[in-house]
Design a protein around this nucleic acid. Structure first.
Lengths: 364, 364
DNA sequence: TTTTATTGTGTGTTCGCACACATTCGATAT
DNA sequence: ATATCGAATGTGTGCGAACACACAATAAAA
C-alpha cells in the first residue's frame, strides 16, 4: 500500500511536528476549544498528512468512561421467542464489558401497551448512552423517538422496523423477502397444483406488520412466477386462546380444502399446527414455519415440519448492542439498515444454528 | 448472574488480597517461575476466586509484541473458489491489525504439489507465530506438521481436514452432514421414485476425501429413511479437461436414465451441468451444488440450479486467522473442531450470503 | 568463612491517550 | 503601574499490564 507509513503515528509525533504540546493536539482532536485558530489549522493539517489514527487500546485505557446501554424488550416468560434476543444482548454485554459497556434490560409484558410505555419511560429517565429496542407498539413508540432524538441518544431497532423516524440502525430480517423464500421452498416441494394455507397465529403478540409483509412476499412469489392459476392460496388468522376454536377452525379448513398440501406459518407457532396434524394423522401436508424454539425443533426432527426459517433472534440482540458500541465506543460508522441472513433450517443442518454453549461461529 | 462482581478485577486487587506484590502475581499469571510454591497456590486460588480476566487494552499497550501469521493457500487465479478465503483472511488481518497482528500470504499453484512444498518451506523459514493452511496435499503436508510441532508453531487447518496430527483447530464444514442435507433437499423436492445422479467434477483439485464423505452422507440419508427401493442413485466422476468427453458422458447418462430427476454436484462446478442442461433444453431435472461463485449464482437466479450449499469460504479464512489470534493474542482456549453452518442458499436469500462490501453480519 | 549462584520478592518504568491542572501572555480594568 | 481575567498553551498523572531491574534471603561452591 503506497504512502502507508509503517511507523505508527502518535499524538506526540503530531505535537512535535506542529511545534505544540500534546495537550494542544489533544484539544484539537477532541475539539475541546481553547486553541488559536491558526494553530488548530496547522495541527489539523498535520493530523491529516500523517494519517493519524488513535490507538484504541490506549484510548480505552486512558478514559475510564463507562457506557450505559438500555435494552427494551418483551419479557420472555410470556413468549419464548424473546429469550434468544436476551441471550444475545447478554453475550454482547459480556464481550463489551472490557470496553466499559454495561447493559440494562427493561422488560415489559408484550400483551400490555401500558407496561411498554411504563418501561420506556423508566428507561428514558435513566438517560442511557444508547438504546436498543423492539418497538412492537407503533403509536406508543413515536413520542419516545422524539424524546431520544432531542436528547441525542442513539437508538437501534431490532426485530420490528419503524421507518418513519431514523434510528441509528435496524437489525432484523426482511420479512417480505422471507415470504418469498418460504414460497420458493413450498413451490420446490410441491411442483404440482394444490392448495396452500398461510396461517397467522397469535398475531397480536408480534407486530402485525411483519406478518403482512411475509404474506405479501409469499403471494408475490407465485404472481412473479406466473403460478397463480396452479395454486390456490388461502390465508387464515388463528388464535390459540381457545384451543377448541383453534382445532375447529383447522378442521373446517381441512375438510373444505381437500387438495391442501402445504401450510406456511408466519409466526413461531408452527409446532401447534404440527401437533394438530399429528393428532389427526394427516401425513401429506407439509409445514414451513419460523424460529428455532424447542417445540418447533421437536417437530422438525420428527419430520412434521419440513423447514424452519431462522430469524436469528440471538444475533439480533447481539448485533443490536454491538452496533451501539461500534458507534459510541469505537466511533465507527454503522450501517443504517442491516438485514440478517434468512437461514433455511432442516433437521440436517439444525446443529449449526441452534444456540449451543458459547458458539460464536458465523458468516462474515 | 450470581457471584458476578461488577467491579473489574485487576492484578493490583489480586496482589492486595494475596498479600504479595503485583510483580509476584504477574509471575504467577505468566508462569515465569521464581515464586514460592505456597504463594503460587494462594495467588492462583485468588485469581480463580475473583475470576480475574486481564484487561486486553492494557496488555496490548504494555507489550508491543507483533504477531506474524502465515497463510498457505491456493492461488485464486487457478480456481476462483480460493478468492473468498483470501478475502476472509484479509478482513481478519484488518480487524486484528490494532492488536499487532500481521498476516503474510503464501499462495501456490493448486495443480502443482511441488509448488505447494516450495511455498510451505518458504513459510516455515519465516518462522511465523501461527499458521493457517488448507492442506490439500496429504502426503506433502505431514512432514511440515512435524516441523511445526517441534517449533511449537500452532497451525489451523481450513477447508480440508487432516485428523492424524493435531492442529490447533480445524475450520470448515462437515462434509458428511452436508451430504445428508443435500439428500434432504432432493427428497423434499422429489417425493416420488426416480433416479438421482451424484456428480463429482474435477475432483483432483479439491481433496477427494471431501467428496467421498459428501456422497456417503447423501446415500445414507436414503438408507436411514428406508427409501433405497424408491430411488436409484448413481454416481459419476466427470472431468472438464475434455469438454466433448464431459458432454458425451452426460449425454450417455441422460439417455440411459430416463427417470433422472435430480443431480447433486459435490463440487463447485454445478454451473457446468446447468449450462449443459440448458443447452440440451432439459427442463425437468433439478440441480443442487456447492459454493456461491459467479457462474453458479447466474444459474441459481435463472432457476437451473435449485439450491447451493454455501461452504462459507470467506468465513473459513476469517475464522482461521481469528482462531490463531484468539489463541496467541487473547490467550483464550479455542475449540479444536469448528464446523461452519451449512447454509441453504436460493435466489431468494442469496443476498445475505454473498460477499457484499464489508458485511460482518453473522449468527452468534 | 567468604564468595557466588539461585531463588523469591518488590519497585519502577513504559505503552498512547485522556484529562486535570499549571503556566504563560496579552488585554483590560483599577 | 499593578492587579485581574481569560484565552492559549504546556505539564503531569493515571489507566492496567508487561517486563526489566533491584534487592533480599538462602543455598551452594570456593
Amino acid at each position: 500500500m503506497p504512502g502507508q507509513k509503517n511507523t505508527v503515528v502518535r499524538i506526540k509525533d503530531i505535537a512535535l511536528k506542529a511545534k505544540v504540546s500534546t495537550g494542544t493536539v489533544d484539544r484539537v482532536i477532541h475539539n475541546r476549544g481553547r486553541v488559536a485558530e491558526d494553530v488548530k489549522e496547522r495541527v489539523l493539517k498535520i493530523l491529516k498528512e500523517l494519517n493519524y489514527e488513535p490507538n484504541i487500546m490506549a484510548r480505552m485505557l486512558g478514559s475510564k468512561k463507562q457506557y450505559v446501554f438500555a435494552a427494551l424488550l418483551p419479557d420472555h416468560t410470556y413468549d419464548a421467542f424473546w429469550m434468544a434476543p436476551k441471550l444475545g444482548i447478554e453475550k454482547a454485554e459480556q464481550d463489551l464489558k472490557q470496553y466499559g459497556v454495561q447493559v440494562e434490560q427493561y422488560v415489559f409484558n408484550p400483551h400490555d401497551p401500558q407496561d411498554y410505555v411504563k418501561m420506556a419511560t423508566k428507561l428514558t429517565k435513566r438517560q442511557p448512552d444508547g438504546i436498543l429496542l423492539s418497538p412492537i407498539y407503533y403509536n406508543e413508540t413515536l413520542p419516545f423517538f422524539e424524546k431520544w432524538n432531542e436528547a441525542k441518544i442513539p437508538f437501534v431497532l431490532f426485530n420490528t422496523q419503524i421507518a418513519e423516524y431514523d434510528p441509528l440502525s435496524y437489525i432484523g430480517q426482511d420479512s417480505y423477502q422471507s415470504g418469498l423464500l418460504a414460497a420458493k421452498l413450498v413451490h420446490y416441494g410441491q411442483p404440482n397444483p394444490c392448495s396452500i394455507l398461510i396461517a397467522h397465529i397469535d398475531e397480536e403478540i408480534h407486530n402485525a406488520q411483519h406478518l403482512v409483509k411475509k404474506e405479501q412476499g409469499f403471494r408475490n412469489y407465485f404472481i412473479q412466477h406466473d403460478l397463480t392459476h396452479h395454486y390456490n392460496i388461502i390465508s387464515v388468522e388463528l388464535n390459540r386462546s381457545s384451543q377448541s376454536g383453534f382445532i375447529k377452525k383447522l378442521d373446517e379448513i381441512l375438510e373444505s380444502t381437500l387438495d391442501l398440501k402445504q401450510i406456511f406459518v408466519t409466526t413461531s407457532q408452527a409446532f401447534d399446527i404440527a401437533k394438530y396434524l399429528k393428532q389427526r394423522h394427516v401425513k401429506n401436508i407439509k409445514l414451513i414455519g419460523y424460529d428455532l424454539i424447542t417445540p418447533n425443533l421437536y417437530y422438525l426432527e420428527t419430520g412434521e415440519i419440513s423447514f424452519l426459517i431462522n430469524q436469528n433472534p440471538k444475533g439480533q440482540g447481539y448485533w443490536g448492542i454491538y452496533q451501539l458500541a461500534e458507534h459510541l465506543v469505537f466511533k465507527k460508522e454503522v450501517p443504517i439498515l442491516k438485514y440478517l441472513p434468512l437461514d433455511v433450517v432442516t433437521s440436517e443442518n439444525l446443529n449449526y444454528f441452534r444456540d449451543e454453549k458459547d458458539d460464536t461461529f458465523v458468516e462474515i
